[in-house]
Nucleic acid binder design. Structure first.
Lengths: 352, 352
DNA sequence: TTTTAATATGCAATCGATTGCTCAAATTAT
DNA sequence: ATAATTTGAGCAATCGATTGCATATTAAAA
């Protein structure tokens, strides 16, 4: 027991039993009598025994670590999903290693490599925006390591996924604008290679069609959806003198940029133009007017993702795992930016 | 080589040498000839050898993992610091395990326990707001495990720390408001047990005193500094009919709440009241008017924290480590909310 | 009473990499 | 040419926990 760290051997010696017995007792193995278990537990406490997870991991092949790959933790959505994952993981004594890909393909590959190197028991990931080749994910599967994707998924991989119904969210958002009287709704989207944006655009289009409004391609603007992109896209539409009475953006950030530009150009919000974003970032309740947006159910998504992960992990035969796709319904959060008649009691939004 | 995973033994067998030789060759040990090293490297590549970090960790006692404890990753400041830490850590082949304490004392203790359990080589932490007893941190030190604190630090621990000069930041901010003509500056602060808030308050007071303005305790409001707290505090000041012409908040969130309440009460910003926040959260450039705030140099802080960490880690004798405190100068980001004459070209702020 | 089961524990190998020590071969010095 | 040194590599223990198999003890069944 040098270095102050007690091992099962120290406990064993103290109790004049073998390390195997101690190990089994600590793991509550039924082959050990209750009396012995009690003694072992007592001695463990006395010696301030802390199990060495690394030794355990080496022998058992389980590190009790889950690697979580997200584009960035600095985004309400992702950090909430992580929180949801942690809740479940911690409850079964697993730790989460968070890795950020910064939406960079190279970094994403490296980070996965690094996670595999620290011997995580499995990986939960949301694919970066610039990632088009998913071979690095295939590598995970080839090693027989559980993989679950959430939100930014791909169809090229036969793995379990948890997503929100982007189509539904966009449909609701667009229909809401239509119900508020809008007919010329601008839509900000991103690359159609990214599933979520494709789906959101489809929801937008279908809502228009349902209400007999033609889809005008001039109104659909593609960009990376950052704040600055929203500014640019909005300015372009204004400069081109394309008539419009609303904007539905696939991202809260770009709708933010649009809001700024609209104000700078003297538009009255929401009277002249109504706005709806996507993501329910915290700042959407700070803006003026407060922003209507789509909430992505991030914590439940994290919970479900983790649960799905553990289902797979606990399966004996990793090859015969059946992939399942869970689709969550997002929720339209109606605030002032999209309403015909403004709700001035903004406090309600903040408490809700 | 069952299970597709090659070990050093597989390489050894293929090359008809021993595992020791392979291990030394891979670790570039000078006792191995270049010819052998080359062969080993080649064979390793052929067999697609991936070192088993767990085995290595068990034997060497090094997991190449750093535990990072933050209140929440979902905060621009913290996620940027983490990014800064990762940059350095990854460059020396270390991984970062991020743990969130959610500003909860219990969770903080648990999370540290969990990190020690996964055998991290050291811990970098920012102390939670509700934490007053730091015994759990002492425990880390007692185990001889390197610990570095950043931003939310404590004097009760003899460890290296990296902080920003909160006093300086607050002083600059307050002096700026004074220079813009303000004399009755409200200050939002948090518990004075938390160092950073104490320092910010001190900076505020000293700036006032320097300019011959008395410190009026009625103007200083204590809260948890969330958005809602900012609303409440602001409303209280207004209701109490205390005259004021500016607000300097120790947090961007509460200044946000103040901004909302001021607008709701018909104040013109920045003409009637000037505002300065602290933190440079991304949303501060979205608001209207855009918010003057204090940037905390988060990425450099992360870099320096990690560098300090590795200096300690590489020290032979953990007991004789000399703690050092690095203090970074924050930067006042001047935007429209604090200016006498408004700058209407808000794009400049956004690009900067 | 003898046999059969069940119960409780021990023995020893194992996970994969590292490392102190030993030793043979090659090189240099005397 | 012999001794001294350097170089390159092997042997075997080790890190701490787990686990298949064997064994001893006790209880139940025949």
């Amino acid at each position: 027991m040098k270095n102050g760290k007690a091992t099962i051997h120290d406990i064993a010696e103290k109790l004049q039993v073998t390390a195997s017995t101690v190990s089994r007792a600590l793991n509550n193995n039924p082959r050990i009598s209750d009396a012995t278990k009690k003694k072992v537990l007592k001695a463990a406490k006395e010696l301030n025994y802390q199990p060495n997870n690394i030794a355990s991991a080496l022998r058992s092949g389980k590190s009790r670590l889950i690697g979580v790959v997200v584009p960035t933790a600095n985004r309400n959505f992702f950090s909430s999903v992580i929180r949801g994952i942690e809740e479940i993981a911690n409850s079964v004594n697993y730790k989460v290693v968070i890795s950020q890909s910064y939406d960079d393909y190279e970094k994403e590959m490296q980070t996965i490599e690094a996670l595999l190197n620290v011997q995580v028991d499995g990986i939960i990931a949301s694919i970066g925006k610039t990632t088009e080749n998913v071979d690095h994910y295939k590598k995970i599967l080839k090693k027989g390591i559980p993989l679950v994707l959430f939100d930014r998924v791909t169809n090229e991989l036969d793995v379990s996924q948890v997503v929100i119904d982007d189509y539904y969210g966009a449909f609701q958002a667009t229909e809401h604008l239509i119900n508020e009287g809008c007919r010329r709704i601008v839509h900000f989207s991103n690359s159609q290679n990214i599933n979520i944006y494709k789906e959101r655009k489809r929801g937008y289009e279908d809502a228009l069609l349902k209400h007999g409004i033609p889809v005008d391609l001039e109104l659909i603007r593609f960009s990376k959806l950052q704040l600055e992109d929203g500014r640019t896209s909005m300015q372009e539409v204004i400069d081109a003198k394309i008539p419009f009475d609303a904007v539905f953006s696939a991202s809260d950030y770009s709708i933010m940029g649009a809001m700024q530009v609209l104000k700078e150009n003297g538009y009255k919000l929401p009277e002249d133009v109504k706005l709806v974003g996507f993501g329910d970032e915290p700042f959407t309740s700070f803006t003026e007017p407060t922003l209507t947006t789509v909430n992505q159910k991030s914590i439940p998504m994290g919970n479900i993702t983790a649960e799905t992960f553990f289902e797979i992990l606990n399966q004996k035969d990793q090859k015969n795992v059946i992939s399942k796709k869970t689709i969550l319904k997002p929720e339209l959060i109606i605030r002032n930016s999209s309403l015909k008649t403004q709700n001035h009691n903004s406090t309600i939004d903040l408490i809700a």
